[in-house]
Design a protein around this nucleic acid. Structure first.
Lengths: 253, 253
DNA sequence: ATAAGTATTTGGTATAGCTAAACACCACTC
DNA sequence: GAGTGGTGTTTAGCTATACCAAATACTTAT
């Protein structure tokens, strides 16, 4: 997001290499070199340095992401104080609804899924813990957008490249802002097949007494199982209860 | 582990900074600078570059690990083909035993916990997903040591700095090798309060038909609940069954 | 207001990272 | 088993750049 004034080019290059490893689940020196447009020698030195740190492992001639990043991920999650509190409630939500329940936070204008729990009949999606997406086309995303400070929201919306993921995706800024307004009134955000055709959901933000948004939780499932009554009454009720339990306990953190 | 011949110093420094962020869960520029022994300016440029990549976020004047590392972690885990297969069995193990069940793999001579499931009465430990420790003082570690190729084992043992974590920790190389031999015979490795006083456990390796070790799973619990019968018969029986189910399915990967 | 502490930017220099080329190491092929 | 195309790794040298120190711009507290 933020443009570094005096970036360390060598670090930028290393991050590019890491990105390739991420996308390929392992690659060889030449392959990486041509992908990032650097010489073999350069790539080799970077990989060797990353390996030294445990962030890359060499398996034969394939270089892969090292498991040390999993340790980093744990420490990054630890930053989120409400994590344990929320996961408990998300588990309950999933069990009670039988659907997929998610916990998402915002970072850099994107939503990052931090936890998911699968109920009995939960849909399979491409979402995983660590998955990032724009805010404007998900229930959790719109929930967080709606309740964050106005200037922050404006910045994010301004920097967003709206794209119709499905025919239902809201790509008009005015329309989006109107929807956010109604979300603020109702306290619940919906997703009517805006990210995946046939997939609907409801979500709500988690806030402290000052109104600061900590994240959002949602329940999502197939439209055929989710009639109006269920999507707009039963599920929101469950979510409200879950949010409440978390919010009550936030003060004691 | 491996020494890079021509390391990229700038990358080494960035990794040092990341390490500080990991250990501190967020720090300011000056604090980081003095910890790693670099100038403020240098640290700032590195942080800005990392932020640009999403690996660091700035919260006021505190720099913290970015949630993007969670995405990396997911991709790193995806490397482990048996992951989904194993987690299912570890869940069962935890439920059946009521104790803590773990899935660990080896990387760089260390054990890395990749998954854990807590049974009804599971002990609380410092272990988390991503946690690393030496192999010689855990059940999973010894299980993997016992069944890995001899030359690999020799290298790891040679490079290990043995240390008595508890009075029961095996710190004598000869004694360890004898124990590994008996583990190979029995197929099960035990931990008799070798890592934490009062904590015992049993573990077994997961191998394919060629004997290649993919990782190990274990069940651990408090010694007072684990009499000889339970630790050396019931638990191993559960583990053997779990391992079997995984191993049968490995061929179809 | 002032000051003391930050973060950030700037400028100059010596270092170190980059490319290209040479070398070493396979795994095939013939 | 020599040869060959493909690797990965190392080397050499030039240039760019990463670093430090100092200056500037912010904060926050007094």
């Amino acid at each position: 997001m933020a443009e570094a004034k005096n970036p360390v080019q060598a670090v930028q290059r290393t991050l590019e290499i890491v990105d390739v490893l991420r996308d390929t689940d392992g690659a060889r020196v030449v392959e990486i070199a041509e992908r990032v447009g650097m010489s073999k020698g350069t790539v080799h030195c970077h990989l060797a340095t990353l390996e030294e740190g445990g962030y890359v492992v060499k398996d034969g001639n394939e270089y892969k992401l090292g498991l040390r990043v999993i340790d980093l991920a744990h420490h990054a999650k630890n930053r989120i104080d409400i994590y344990d509190l929320v996961t408990e409630q998300v588990d309950s939500l999933a069990e009670e609804s039988g659907e997929l329940a998610l916990f998402t936070v915002e970072e850099g204008g994107e939503g990052v899924c931090l936890y998911m729990a699968t109920g009995e009949a939960a849909v399979k999606t491409e979402v995983y813990v660590g998955y990032r997406n724009d805010l404007y086309y998900t229930a959790v995303g719109k929930a967080m957008l709606a309740f964050m400070p106005a200037e922050r929201r404006d910045r994010i919306i301004e920097e967003t490249a709206f794209e119709a993921i499905t025919p239902n995706t809201i790509i008009d800024e005015v329309e989006l802002r109107e929807e956010l307004e109604s979300i603020r009134e109702e306290g619940i955000a919906y997703n009517y097949s805006e990210s995946i055709h046939g997939l609907v959901g409801a979500g709500a933000p988690i806030r402290d007494q000052d109104g600061t948004v900590y994240g959002a939780i949602s329940v999502i499932g197939p439209a055929r199982r989710m009639d109006d009554e269920r999507l707009e009454n039963d599920i929101p009720e469950m979510i409200r209860r879950a949010v409440n339990i978390v919010e009550i306990n936030i003060t004691s953190l």
